[in-house]
């Protein structure tokens, strides 16, 4: 049974999990600055302790296509930080972990089971690589 705690958020009505140890802070959506002519994967920018942090548009999370969300999770993605938008943030401990479906694509490390619900889990390092920012 996984002992780790996860931040679970919803995007487009679907939950996803981030290892809580990778989450540095939760910030308000209101802090997001829109970047004109920004990359398609970029929702906008956030200031983070002397650096510009990219806020991800959520192609993997089936999100609301850029609609305002409740919070921005500031995530340590290994080489840099990124901000991931989501709704209804909560800390959860999973009951079990499961492998990803074979056809799964995206920056996921696996599935987590919370009660009856199965939730994809974000791999922050993989996310950063998939964005091509390494």
């Amino acid at each position: 049974m996984p002992e780790q705690v996860y931040l679970v958020m919803d995007s487009g009505g679907r939950p996803f999990a981030i290892p809580a140890r990778a989450v540095e802070a939760l910030r308000s959506w209101e802090e997001l600055h829109v970047l004109p002519l920004g990359s398609p994967w970029l929702q906008g920018l956030l200031e983070g302790e002397g650096e510009v942090v990219p806020v991800l548009r959520d192609p993997w999370f089936q999100g609301g296509g850029g609609a305002p969300q409740e919070v921005l999770a500031l995530v340590n993605a290994g080489e840099a930080r990124v901000a991931v938008p989501g709704d209804h943030p909560r800390l959860c401990a999973p009951d079990a972990s499961e492998p990803l479906p074979e056809d799964a694509t995206g920056p996921w490390s696996g599935m987590l089971r919370f009660g009856l619900e199965s939730v994809v889990c974000l791999d922050p390092g993989k996310l950063y690589l998939e964005l091509g920012l390494h």
């Binding site: 970047l35 398609p40 970029l42 510009v52 920012l133």
Partner: peptide, 28 residues
């Protein structure tokens, strides 16, 4: 002054190279 990575931008050459900020401004 906060530097902006060129790959955050959709167009080349990048129209923006950084962000200036203080209590009143977030300016590209």
């Amino acid at each position: 002054y906060l530097r902006l990575r060129p790959d955050y931008l959709r167009i080349t050459p990048p129209w923006c190279r950084g962000v200036l900020r203080d209590a009143r401004h977030w300016a590209y």
